[in-house]
């Protein structure tokens, strides 16, 4: 418990640094949000900047921002007048979260069994064929797999809608793209670590004692072998995040990734900041969750810290 608290406290300075760095970067983006094709009258622009607090010195703005952030206020959006950044993100985050969750589920449900299967018959076709596929999965980026899947399953076979959002069927292509890409390294990791664990003494002992082979495999070996896999879920989630930028633009999904990209294009400073902070916080939490899951699985880790 104290450990969880310490880790949570550790996040605060990290997030502050992220806020500050993103703040200055976002404000340094050339071109302001009010620079349109037809320039606004100087007076109007000044009023607008005053309204959004953009006329104050940067450090003051940053201070105000942090104070408001502590109260859970991410400020007003500039490109969506009348909306606060919190509302804009709130309307999008569910989409990205559910998409990411389904993708991660697919990744685990495909990746881990494939790895277990491959490790159960090393160097047979059951090992070679899936591992060959995972190599391809590692090297084919999501923005290649996505269009190819769309080309085959929606334009070629006409089974799935190529883009859009709204019904569960719209999940299939984007979630599979993200999920399969993530499943590949998971499968390789599962296989590698199972191969390592099964040659250890305690597994041999269990087998010698006459524990049924399937029980040795799933209870004794797999539990330890999954440790690196669980640890990898943190970075994997980060991969899903950057994948989501591309996938959401590709499949026209109204999620956070597309929001961030349009915010950058629109120079919506407040929205850039908001999305970055939400992403950073989400990743930090996911990593913490992965570490905690690791500790739950492995008493050595739990005591060692």
């Amino acid at each position: 418990m104290a450990y969880v608290l310490r880790r949570l406290l550790e996040m605060v300075p990290v997030l502050l640094v992220v806020v500050a760095a993103t703040f200055f970067l976002a404000h340094a983006v050339p071109g302001g949000p009010f620079d349109k094709e037809r320039p606004l009258p100087a007076e109007v622009k000044a009023r607008l900047e005053q309204y959004y607090g953009l006329d104050r010195p940067l450090p003051v703005q940053l201070g105000n921002y942090v104070v408001r952030l502590a109260q859970g206020d991410l400020g007003p959006s500039i490109k969506y007048p009348g909306w606060s950044v919190r509302e804009v993100i709130g309307s999008r985050i569910g989409v990205s979260f559910s998409l990411g969750f389904v993708a991660l589920l697919i990744a685990v449900l495909v990746g881990v069994p494939v790895g277990v299967l491959a490790a159960s018959r090393p160097n047979s076709w059951l090992d070679r064929v899936p591992m060959g596929f995972t190599l391809v999965g590692i090297c084919v980026p999501s923005f290649v797999l996505g269009p190819v899947l769309a080309l085959v399953f929606s334009l070629g076979l006409g089974w799935l809608p190529p883009c859009g959002w709204g019904s569960p069927i719209h999940y299939v292509l984007p979630a599979c793209t993200l999920g399969l890409i993530t499943a590949a390294p998971l499968a390789r990791l599962t296989r590698g670590s199972l191969m390592e664990v099964r040659s250890l003494d305690y597994v041999r002992t269990a087998r010698a004692k006459g524990v049924p082979p399937l029980r040795v495999w799933f209870v004794h070996a797999l539990r330890n072998a999954l440790l690196p896999v669980v640890t990898y879920l943190g970075p994997a989630a980060a991969g899903l995040v950057s994948g989501s930028f591309v996938i959401e633009s590709l499949f026209d999904v109204p999620g956070m990734g597309r929001l961030f990209v349009t915010a950058i294009i629109n120079r919506d400073v407040m929205l850039i900041l908001g999305t970055t902070i939400v992403y950073a916080a989400a990743l930090l939490f996911l990593n913490l969750a992965a570490d905690l899951a690791n500790a739950a699985l492995n008493p050595k880790v739990a005591r060692g810290r």
Partner: peptide, 17 residues
């Protein structure tokens, strides 16, 4: 800590800035 951050975002921001 840095490796847990969303680095793609940072790269995008940098190239834009």
């Amino acid at each position: 800590i840095v490796s847990t951050l969303p680095l793609t975002l940072i790269v995008i921001l940098c190239t834009v800035v």
